[in-house]
């Protein structure tokens, strides 16, 4: 009776649409509909755009050019120079964020007087609107009136004012500093939350086994933090690679091309040069790289994803 094809189909249908699948579908439906309404069209649209020689100042000639835009972008020296600047910005920012947020999370995980106040203060940078944040840092870094020069001078660390953003060797690290300052709170919270979800029993068991603080840290804390680290790495890598606001507010890609990163080039290509085709192509190259990185991070650090 079992092997009749009719029964087979019924069984398979029942299996594919069993309670589990039905609830999963129901649970995922809201998110998917939101993304379908708002995100899918823009993504497809900009992807579609990347195959056209779409230059807004030339509205009557928009030929379909296959992968020409991609080839053009990839064979552009400026693009590769921007890529290397994006890489250095991303690497230094993400590394700094990881180190700082881990340290902060460890600190906030301890109990001591003033911890709550400290944790509230640490959140403040995150809450400053991007525009105000950019202008604040611009003013701090200003070589003439800036607080940074003023402070270093008053402390006797420098004896004459230094050129900050205008010095092409310092531009990227300084922007990275502002970026890190604003991003660290979120990263610290994500790591702290992961830390808090490590069952205390584990620590107790380890204590009974005679492991000291350091050993407990290495053998329990670090491995259990993997999910938090993964989140922070993925999120911050994606944010850093695509970061635009501070480059716009602080330097507009300058001086010369010192802060001309890929995201800035995409902006210039799209809104300054009005070349939506190549701008989109550039965006998709960046998106592909970002995705590959995220995938790599998930595969290396993700547990079951």
């Amino acid at each position: 009776m079992r092997s009749s094809p009719k029964r087979d189909i019924k069984f398979r249908l029942a299996r594919r649409f069993d309670y589990e699948s039905r609830s999963a579908a129901l649970f995922i439906l809201p998110v998917m509909s939101v993304l379908a309404i708002v995100a899918v069209f823009p993504i497809l649209y900009s992807f579609y755009t990347s195959f056209f020689n779409l230059k807004l100042t030339r509205p009557h000639r928009v030929p379909f050019v296959w992968f020409d835009n991609y080839i053009k972008v990839l064979s552009d020296e400026l693009f590769w120079a921007s890529v290397s600047r994006t890489v250095s910005f991303t690497v230094m920012s993400v590394a700094a964020i990881l180190v700082l947020s881990l340290s902060i999370a460890i600190l906030l995980n301890e109990s001591f007087r003033g911890r709550r106040l400290l944790s509230a203060i640490i959140l403040i940078p995150w809450a400053i609107p991007t525009v105000a944040n950019g202008l604040l840092w611009k003013w701090i870094y200003d070589s003439g009136f800036g607080a940074l020069n003023g402070l270093l001078f008053q402390l006797g660390i420098i004896d004459s004012y230094i050129t900050w953003l205008g010095d092409s060797d310092k531009t990227i690290p300084l922007i990275s500093n502002s970026f890190v300052w604003k991003e660290v709170p979120l990263a610290a919270i994500l790591i702290l939350v992961t830390m808090k979800s490590i069952p205390e029993d584990l620590y107790r068991a380890a204590k009974v086994d005679g492991a000291n603080v350091f050993k407990r840290f290495i053998h329990i804390t670090i491995p259990s933090l993997k999910p938090g680290f993964m989140l922070v790495m993925i999120y911050e890598t994606m944010m850093a690679i695509r970061h635009f606001d501070l480059f716009f507010l602080l330097t507009e890609g300058g001086p010369a091309e010192a802060s001309h990163v890929v995201s800035w080039q995409i902006y210039v290509e799209t809104f300054r040069n009005l070349s939506f085709g190549t701008g989109s192509a550039m965006s998709y190259i960046l998106a592909l790289v970002t995705f590959a990185l995220a995938y790599f991070i998930i595969r290396t650090l993700g547990s079951k994803l």
């Binding site: 993504i43 635009f244 995220a294």
Partner: peptide, 15 residues
């Protein structure tokens, strides 16, 4: 879901 966030916002502003 991840894919929807890897594209730079600049490219998505107009759409």
């Amino acid at each position: 879901i991840l894919t929807t966030r890897v594209i730079p916002d600049i490219a998505l502003v107009v759409p």
